[in-house]
Amino acid sequence: MHYTGLDDFLARGRAALARGPVAVMLAEDAVEVDTTLRHHQQQGFAALIALMPQDIPLAPDLMDVVHRVDFDPWADDAMQAAVNRLNDAATGIWLFYGYNAEFLFYPFCETRTVGEMLAFHAEERRDAMLTYVVDLYAADLDRFPNAVSLDHAMLDRSGYYALARPDPQNHNHPKDRQLDFFGGLRWRHEEHVPPERRKIDRISIFRAKPGLRLREDHSFSDEEYNTYACPWHNNLTAAVVSFRTAKALRTNPGSRYDIRSFRWRNSVPFEWHSRQLLDLGLMEPGQWF
């Protein structure tokens, strides 16, 4: 299913937004596009929407199951604008958004579908889920110059921290149940990352509702959507394991020649399993067992 743009998709493909959860992927390049879509298909998303430039190929087996939408990923606020338009057309539906070479993991995802997980989350009166963007990178940059290798992926086992999120309306108190999270490559190589892009928290999963707006920093206009838990106990969180930062640091000429390797003493192989992320404290099962 191929659409010439978001207008065409919302005119002809709107039925894809009738039942969730729906995964939205923005392809910035051709790296692991098919793998990304298959990963989320296997997790049980009801529909897959791929926002892609026309010159990026899509595997034949995905053409009939993916809603491919011609899209310019480098337009101003590209993801923000797309998510906000889809939100307006999908009231009440759970949406997940991410980029190519990014993979959603949630507690027990090997045996439970994303729909089952979100059904439980909704029963706890939650309409959004905090996700941590966990950087992945190839072990050998000489062998994998774009820093992407599924078979030789590494992540940081430590070096993550959180700070209270300031409230511009109340300088004496930080925002309730909101934190700014840091770590990974953006922390270790912060001299190459603008300050406003160093956070690794993202509200990647949310229930669409009228008037809701995704902001540039991956938070939402409804402040309750930005909280990591409800007031009475801890809630589920998830992780988005991502090669995106590693790719960017290898693409930028300044950082490409400054960084010879992303490995350090706390690098460990990624096992592609939710248990590892749970053990490292990079997501939280809450009351879901």
Rank of each mutant, 00 (worst) to 15 (best):
R215M: 06
A23H: 05
R165N: 07
A50E: 13
P168M: 09
D279N: 14
P269W: 15
E110L: 13
I259L: 03
G5M: 14
L277T: 01
E123R: 15
T113Y: 12
A11P: 13
R202P: 00
I205W: 01
H218M: 07
G115V: 12
E116Q: 06
R197F: 13
Q43A: 12
A90C: 03
P107S: 13
Y161Q: 15
R198E: 06
Q43H: 10
A246H: 08
R275C: 04
I49F: 14
G98F: 00
D34W: 01
V69K: 12
L26V: 02
S149A: 05
R125N: 07
H189Q: 14
K209E: 07
D142P: 11
V33T: 01
I259H: 06
C230G: 06
A164K: 04
Y99D: 10
Q287M: 14
Y228Q: 08
D180A: 09
G5S: 13
M283V: 07
D217F: 05
D7E: 15
H233Q: 06
G13L: 00
K175R: 10
H171R: 11
H192R: 12
L17C: 12
A30N: 05
G183W: 01
S158M: 12
L150D: 11
P73V: 00
A248K: 09
F270S: 09
C230Y: 09
H2A: 08
D142I: 15
H39S: 10
G254K: 13
F262W: 03
Y137R: 10
A138E: 01
